[in-house]
């Protein structure tokens, strides 16, 4: 019988990497524990370090996100998960004193190249936050916001309907599109935020604990939605919910820190490996709740 690699579908390579630093620093990262893909990579993080006011928050993170899959970033609080995910649509640019070393390739092009336009990047790589943050506008205007300011041509009504349908919200709001978005429940607001992100037809959606403030039913709806959305987009999700990571993500990246308070990627692989037979003892200790 085969071992933990039995669920591999793509041209995946375990035990091989060229992009991860081979030097062992602090807790130590074994490059063999960082899975790589031969092709169809949407986002490639290369030796990425982020500094706030000169102090490193995450250091030398390298891994690849494959197309039309869900990748979960997991790890204890303060390990740098949100810092990492915010790098993918240049949200960290908005923070004073932030410095980014290394690079992220998006469809092969460097996200941090001088000519890269952060606004365009944020349309192509959308983001959904922990707390739903609809604009204090109507349901319709929330979804139409992106296409309007982006000057997208076409039938706006149709775009709004399509986005709301994809976000599994159309049935609940189609007859009250002009109502305030703030009148919706928390779960509906979060799906509206997903619809808003979908309206500009992004290639990637980043989700930073998208169900953390939701009840179990709304959480289930969001998870179902995530599984459906990968038909069209690639999803990177930060979650503290270990069961959620297993339910929605095909791959999981474990970010860990030690007393240095600097986050590093210690293991990346199929979710069934991370939660079944992790290779790094720190991953085992984290997923079984013995460190956090």
């Amino acid at each position: 019988m085969s071992d933990s690699g039995s669920g591999l579908m793509r041209n995946e390579t375990i035990n091989q990497t060229t992009s991860v630093p081979t030097s062992i620093h602090r807790g130590g990262v074994d490059p063999a524990n960082i899975m790589t893909f031969d092709d169809d990579v949407v986002l490639e993080t290369k030796d990425l370090s982020v500094f706030y006011g000169g102090k490193p928050a995450i250091e030398r993170v390298s891994f690849q996100v494959p197309r039309n899959e869900v990748v979960a970033i997991i790890g204890p609080s303060g390990a740098g998960k949100s810092t990492l995910i915010r790098c993918y649509n240049r949200m960290n640019d908005l923070i004073n004193g932030v410095e980014i070393k290394g690079d992220i390739l998006f469809e092969g092009s460097p996200l941090y190249a001088p000519e890269a336009d952060p606004t365009e990047i944020r349309f192509r790589i959308g983001m959904v936050f922990q707390r739903p943050n609809p604009f204090p506008k109507s349901i319709y205007d929330n979804v139409a916001f992106g296409p309007r300011i982006n000057g997208i041509q076409g039938d706006l009504d149709q775009m709004v309907e399509e986005s709301l349908r994809k976000a599994a919200l159309w049935g609940e709001v189609h007859d009250r599109l002009n109502d305030s978005a703030l009148a919706l429940s928390g779960g509906q607001q979060q799906r509206l935020c997903i619809a808003r992100a979908l309206a500009v037809k992004p290639e990637v959606i980043l989700m930073d604990e998208p169900a953390a403030s939701l009840d179990p039913i709304s959480t289930q709806a969001i998870e179902t939605l995530i599984r459906e959305l990968i038909e069209d987009v690639t999803i990177v999700i930060v979650t503290h919910n270990m069961q959620q990571a297993q339910r929605v993500a095909k791959y999981a990246a474990v970010v860990m820190t030690d007393e240095s308070r600097i986050g590093e990627l210690i293991e990346y692989g199929p979710t069934e490996q991370i939660f079944g037979t992790p290779r790094d003892q720190r991953t085992e200790a984290y997923v079984t709740g013995r460190i956090g």
């Binding site: 270990m242 069961q243 297993q246 939660f275 079944g276 037979t277 992790p278 991953t283 085992e284 997923v287 079984t288």
Partner: peptide, 9 residues
């Protein structure tokens, strides 16, 4: 406990 990894095994 919804155990995972070594605990689940």
């Amino acid at each position: 406990e919804a155990p995972v990894a070594g605990d689940l095994r």
